[in-house]
Simulated assay, not measured.
Amino acid sequence: MNFGPPLTTRETPAQRAQGELILGFKRLGAVTKIDTLFQQGALKARLPRPQDPTLCEAVTLNISGGVAGGDALDTMVTLAPGAQLALASQAAERIYRTPGPAARIRTRLIVQEGARLDYLPQETILFDRFALDRELDIDLQGDAEFVGVETLLFGRQAMGEIVQSGSLRDRIRLRHDGRLVFQDATRLEGGIAAQLQRRTVADGARAVAGLIIAGPEAAHKLDSLRAVLNAAPGIVAGASAFDNMIFARLLAPDGASLRQCLISALEACRERRKLPRVWQG
């Protein structure tokens, strides 16, 4: 009987999702129209019929079904002078566990003078042993206006999930006429569950959000925003105004209560403009 050398098998490398989305919008008379649309890979965009004829709506989609280690997603959105846009995501983004490199997400938003952007992605859900490296850069020019929100959920509480460990690097930068006026950086590594229990981190909260309001009249919205935040049950929040902008941090025990509070806050600081339909379900 002859014995040959053992067969060797090669591990097939995991497929990595890549996506690039470039959107541009311009003002034509009283309405905003899309001017540039480039989509490649996992990132797509849809333009639903607007609820307000003067405010264009765009919805982004990640057709890969979630984000895993090694994925790379890049989005750039530009608003020409006078354009008005509400930009939302179709659904919550899921960041899955990975034994390998971090998922990389980069978003750049350019809002030229006289334009207004409502940046309203839905929640980002982090799963146990996730790894995420995310950056959001906002460039405002002149009297541009901006309202934006980013929400992180550490596991799905209704499913009994607990994020014991993971890696998070999350950075938000806002520039006005090229000058850096705001930067917020979050880094959590290793024992996530234990760190969230610390009073100086999240004091046990499992849902966290940051809300930015920027523009010439932003500071005038501080009192009404604080009134909404203070009236929300179970929410711990604070808001400050500086350099023609407001930044608020919200902590909640679960995603549902945080979302309800955010809806009330967004309605108050967006002059009662209707939220995109994906937020109304």
Rank of each mutant, 00 (worst) to 15 (best):
T151Q: 06
P233L: 15
L136D: 15
R156P: 10
Q183N: 08
D52I: 05
L258C: 02
L153P: 10
N244C: 15
L258S: 00
G255Y: 07
Y119L: 03
E271L: 09
G69K: 14
A202Q: 01
R116E: 07
F38C: 11
D177N: 13
R187H: 13
T8S: 14
R116I: 06
A80K: 04
E145W: 15
S89I: 05
T12P: 00
A241C: 10
E271Y: 12
Q51S: 07
A232C: 07
R249G: 00
I138F: 13
H176W: 06
L168S: 04
L109T: 09
L188C: 10
G29F: 01
L251I: 00
L37S: 11
E11L: 13
A239C: 07
P101C: 06
G70S: 14
K221N: 05
E93K: 12
I213H: 03
T78H: 08
D254W: 04
K274W: 11
R116H: 14
L23N: 08
V147I: 12
A58N: 03
Q112I: 02
V77K: 13
S240L: 15
A58F: 02
Q157G: 14
D137E: 12
Q51M: 12
E161V: 12
G65T: 06
V278Q: 03
A58T: 00
S264T: 03
P50W: 06
R277M: 01
G160H: 10
F127W: 09
Q18S: 15
G41M: 14
A202P: 00
G155Y: 06
T32C: 10
S167Q: 12
R226T: 11
M245V: 02
I138A: 09
D128A: 01
L188W: 05
G190S: 09
F247M: 03
R156S: 10
P99I: 13
A86Q: 15
L55G: 00
L168A: 06
G24L: 08
A202L: 08
